[in-house]
Nucleic acid binder design. Structure first.
Lengths: 311, 311
DNA sequence: CCGCAGGGCAAGTGATGCTTATGCTGCTCG
DNA sequence: CGAGCAGCATAAGCATCACTTGCCCTGCGG
């Protein structure tokens, strides 16, 4: 197998016309050059230089070989660059899964942060609920997934998954402004509730919260889209409990909705990035950092997580 | 510097999905594969395989790297083939110089022999007299030259030249058939002579031969083209002395010209191939062999040289 | 004629890269 | 459920490689 280094050396020698100069250029000793060229001659079966008393003369075969080497060396060089880009994540692909709220509240800012430093990275976004996303992770269909976990219905994540906590959100009670409804759960026994689909962790949390407060939540409307939920609340159709990212200051419904943080200790939701711990995609770290940087800092109901990581 | 062998190994591992199988395919031990892959991972900074309990799983980066390697490996392979062709002379260039008679009598057959075995070789033919050809050899403008030397005017060839004797030609006296002229030089004192240009070795040889025979050669016509000389003889315009290759049986003038071998010991001409002894063009040997094979075997005045070589 | 520049060659040495041997893990089959 | 085993990692040993140092040879040029 012809060694690329020998081709580089040959090129230098042919260009400079001297072993000594080529050696200086390449940081070798003249003897090393001599031996490399000898090896190359032996390996190719070509006589590359005519040795003369004072110096050498490149053979036609040497010039020919230099020319023939150009594509090889170019390809090698190109490969080197592309590998470096791959290794640093400058190029490369990452498949991100996210649940809807995060897609809206976190992902856009994260992606713009990421593309600022990795403009040629290819990010593919897939939306789904945590269960689906975890399956996709396990199947290797996703590199990283944004998932959540309610304090009141903690989840068990599969083995081999690394977790990166991003946000701890307070759960917030939303009431139509001026409705006169209580801000405490115990006083909301006769109210209509709006929550997410049956069986979701959000709906389950509502049930448990109300049960703990001694009331039963009468669910009138269900939607997994917190924008819809807020609109329903602002239209006076009921009250709701949403996590912090589901109701941020500056929301269009801000004026018509009254928000109150729930005081209960476990009234929170955590958002975390999940990925298989064996996954070594070089963009992983960058993506998680970008997601961290995308967490709103000024939101009273949203608390960026410390740089904790659990495997 | 990324080693091509590692890329080949990577490809084998990715294709087979196993270190063990790849090792068997490549004739290595599984451990060697493991170490090669480790080295490659270290060098590229990429994680190429996820190690699992039973086997490995190729990372996206591994597949990517295999794809990126394709041009490099293809270029290497191509280079290998081209180098082999260069080394065996299958391709490659050779510049041959020749004097006119040899161009006609030797070169065509030699070239057809050579192209039979080296169909893609590029041969360039340059015509000239020995002095010009030797200069061209020295300047590196020719790889090999066909030159001649008369027994009566031996030449001194420059240092550093390798000689390959090809032919020893008898010198032949040509008379018009039925002219009644003597076949011995001593009896040709009043005849008109036809010979080559003044100062050429051929003309000089004639002078010396005649001087030795005690006659003076009256030169009436000069031509360096033996075809022309023979035509002049056959037209009855004089007699001539030509080397064997200048008058072969089957020549169109055969019937009208009477040929007699000169008996003098030094009445011969030698044709030899000359090249700089440092010249390592792989086609050199082939060309000289081809020239040898091109020497007419049945010609009574032409004697193939033994495989002698003098440096 | 001697100094010197350029290259070849030999010996020494550290790095490389293979092998053999052993360890580790988790699957598979009795 | 446990033993065997398949597959890879790692350690140790060893041969080879490849570079350096040091010396030689050659031919030019003062």
């Amino acid at each position: 197998m012809l060694k690329p280094q020998h081709l580089l050396t040959l090129r230098a020698v042919v260009r400079t016309g001297s072993f000594v100069i080529a050696a200086r250029d390449l940081g070798y000793t003249a003897s090393a050059i001599s031996q490399q060229i000898s090896a190359l001659e032996k390996e190719t079966g070509l006589v590359l230089f005519e040795r003369e008393a004072h110096g050498i003369r490149a053979t036609a075969a040497a010039h020919r070989l230099v020319d023939l080497s150009v594509p090889v060396l170019a390809a090698m060089d190109d490969l080197g660059h592309q590998v470096h880009e791959l290794a640093t994540g400058a190029t490369g692909r990452l498949r991100l899964g996210s649940f809807p709220t995060a897609s809206v509240r976190l992902v856009p800012a994260a992606l713009s942060a990421l593309t600022a430093t990795h403009p040629r990275a290819q990010i593919r976004l897939e939306e789904g609920e945590p269960d689906e996303l975890v399956d996709a992770l396990n199947d290797g269909d996703l590199d990283v997934a944004l998932v959540y976990e309610y304090g009141l219905s903690p989840r068990q994540w599969p083995d081999g998954m690394a977790r990166h906590h991003l946000v701890r959100e307070d759960l917030v009670l939303l009431r139509p402004r001026g409705s006169g409804l209580s801000s405490r759960l115990a006083g909301l026994s006769r109210t209509r509730w709006i929550t997410s689909s049956e069986g979701t962790a959000g709906a389950l949390s509502l049930t448990r919260l109300c049960a703990a407060a001694g009331v039963e939540a009468a669910v009138a409307f269900r939607s997994n889209n917190y924008d819809v939920v807020r609109e329903l609340v602002s239209a006076g159709l009921g009250v709701a409990i949403v996590p912090g990212l589901g109701h941020s200051p500056g929301d269009s419904t801000g004026d018509a909705v009254e928000a109150t943080r729930l005081a209960q200790r476990s009234a929170f939701r955590r958002v975390m990035a999940l990925h298989r711990s064996e996954n070594s995609n070089p963009l992983l770290g960058t993506m998680i950092r970008s997601l961290r940087s995308a967490v709103p800092a000024e939101d009273p109901y949203v608390h960026p997580a410390q740089d904790e990581q659990t495997a």
